[in-house]
Design a protein around this nucleic acid. Structure first.
Lengths: 361, 361
DNA sequence: CGATTTACGTTAAACGTTTAACTTGGCGTT
DNA sequence: AACGCCAAGTTAAACGTTTAACGTAAATCG
């Protein structure tokens, strides 16, 4: 242990001024003569002075902290979001404190309380379930909050940033039927989660409308390993569909694992559409066609909303809905049309005409 | 904006006791009679009281915060680490504040200062370069610090947790030559980073010793997209090796992308060993053989060291070195022995006898 | 030239906790 | 009955800042 940390008093006495003056030069809150200013700076540097945020925050009531709560810090989607937010926050002079709820409402609640103890200037929350904890709802009146991803925007107590999940599901379904698929299974993580339910509905409805038969939906959970097991198990006792549509990045992983394990070829034996767009998806022989969420735009929107609110904007919650897009690559096989319905051939996707395969992004 | 937040005074007056008593029941710092205790709890609950951490920390000098600084929050390796640490920290009642240096020493320095403003009880840092910023070195005398991953343990000013990188490289190289490979290229991210240099050295030395010829090493940087471009570029103007050994998870991605793009088959046309072990690596037709870092153990060790130091342990820095292992799967082809050297056939790997392929972990 | 403004500093009071030191009343011991 | 002791609460002083209110000397003005 070295000498104790320098306080503002130490700096003040070394520079021969009052603590108030030190504070003013450090924060630029009042003009200070050049000579004094320099003297203070020198003293601060010499003592390696760093203001204590706790004290500063206590006195001023202003905190430059934003708290981020996500369901899982091992999920690439959430960490990508956190990563982008952390960069933007850092640039705007905010520090970030993170916590994960591990998809457990009880943990969510307790972490939330802990975060609130910091009196953050703002928070962004990706809830782990449809029903927001009451702690959070109450907090929305006091602290700027932005809800992201797993939210039902209607009636939310705060600004929300989501994608149009039903549309996302439909886009994928549309591509599948355009490519001639009638027999598809939908791999969802957990239908209790509203956005997943929406994606499923979008895909399901379109598929049923276009093919006349309802697709099968299976739930694989939020863990890729157990998800793979469940999918493998399902696979053993059902006829193989021509395509599977995964509604989540971890379900994508789960079905890909199970398929690889069972040595079924993509797209020859079964077509696959994945969710989210990560580097590993194009790092494979047959690159994965996937639904891509506009991650950068989402993060940007979240940050915009949050800064607006932290800047004092009041008024009814605004709901931002972004649209997902289909990243067409090689994992969906064009099936010969069997009669009835639209004729579809590989490469003739009405959605992305002339672009059945795109470069690695 | 709702009513102001309740303070300890509000609770105290509602419960008809002094603030000291409230503090004591909240923290259990002194015995309090059951009836009073209950009254205070009730008041606190009614007012939705949540202690202000800034005030608490200012007065007590005790902070339940650990700061984590990593080079990149988009890198799965680092986020996995952060994720595990966050869980352990949460369980021990610590909050976590994260920052990323974006592999930029200047940013690293400034984020470090910002983090220190919080007077964290401890910090874990994955430096972005070999030479630690002086701010950090000085801090090691004041605050418990654990350095992880990208560190040279020798002479470090704080506890370190690393893997034996030279050994990791050697293990992979050994497997490659056992499988009959003589012509391998090593894909490094950045040889300016010590651990990468070590991995390269371990692999390089073994390969040269065993095959009599030095392997080629190329640097692909820390971004998978530009890395893929560089590898593709290299590929165009050089004869294809029989194997490539990636020393990083992002170089793995880079190599795989470039290979996929060029439509070269793994392992038929070229064998690949990747680094780190993620779900997507086994979610492919030919699952990836990879060097696996003991992530859970690393996180655990970091936390153990940190809690020990936060608990007051003093003494010279301890350097923990963990050992990586090879996860053998399908991406390394057994080559027929060409004479000279050891005879090697697929499935006869002296390192993992009888286990040339393992289940999805 | 005195009065008023300006420019720059200082004083001291908070901010919401924790905690050492102090009261107080009830109990057991001699 | 006098004494000390213990248990349970209270008082009040910090902790390191920020900032409103207040000097004070020099500059400006009528």
């Amino acid at each position: 242990m070295q000498k104790k940390r320098a306080t503002i008093k130490d700096v003040a006495s070394l520079a021969g001024v009052s603590t108030a003056t030190v504070s003013h030069v450090v924060n630029g809150s009042k003009p200070v003569k050049q000579t004094v200013h320099d003297r203070v700076i020198a003293a601060a540097r010499q003592l390696d002075y760093q203001a204590d945020r706790a004290a500063s925050q206590l006195r001023s009531g202003q905190t430059r902290v934003v708290a981020i709560l996500v369901p899982d810090l091992d999920d690439a989607f959430f960490t990508s979001l956190v990563s982008r937010l952390e960069v933007m926050a850092g640039k705007d002079g905010f520090d970030v404190i993170v916590a994960s709820s591990r998809d457990d409402p009880a943990v969510e609640q307790s972490r939330l309380r802990a975060l609130l103890g910091w009196r953050p200037a703002g928070m962004v929350v990706v809830p782990c379930t449809d029903s927001l904890p009451t702690v959070l709802i109450e907090e929305c009146g006091r602290t700027p909050v932005v809800l992201a991803d797993r939210v039902v925007p209607a009636g939310a107590p705060a600004d929300t940033v989501t994608i149009d999940n039903a549309e996302a599901g439909e886009i994928a379904a549309r591509h599948l039927v355009a490519m001639g698929h009638r027999d598809v299974v939908i791999a969802a993580s957990n239908l209790a989660i509203a956005p997943i339910r929406e994606r499923e509905r979008g895909a399901h409805d379109f598929l049923r409308g276009a093919t006349g038969r309802a697709p099968v939906t299976i739930e694989l959970g939020s863990n890729s390993i157990t998800g793979a097991e469940r999918f493998a198990h399902w696979q053993e006792r059902h006829a193989r569909p021509t395509a599977v549509l995964a509604l989540t990045n971890v379900t994508t992983l789960a079905v890909l694992s199970a398929l690889a394990q069972a040595r079924v070829d993509i797209p020859e034996q079964v077509s696959v559409i994945g969710f989210d767009d990560y580097a590993w998806m194009s790092a494979r022989k047959t690159a994965l066609t996937a639904i891509r969420q506009p991650l950068d735009l989402m993060a940007q929107s979240v940050w915009d909303r949050l800064t607006a609110r932290m800047g004092g904007e009041t008024g009814a919650p605004v709901a931002i809905s972004l649209t997902a897009s289909l990243q067409v690559r090689d994992s969906v096989l064009g099936l010969p049309a069997i009669g009835g319905g639209d004729v579809a051939t590989p490469g003739s996707d009405p959605l992305n005409p002339g672009e059945s395969k795109s470069a690695i992004h």
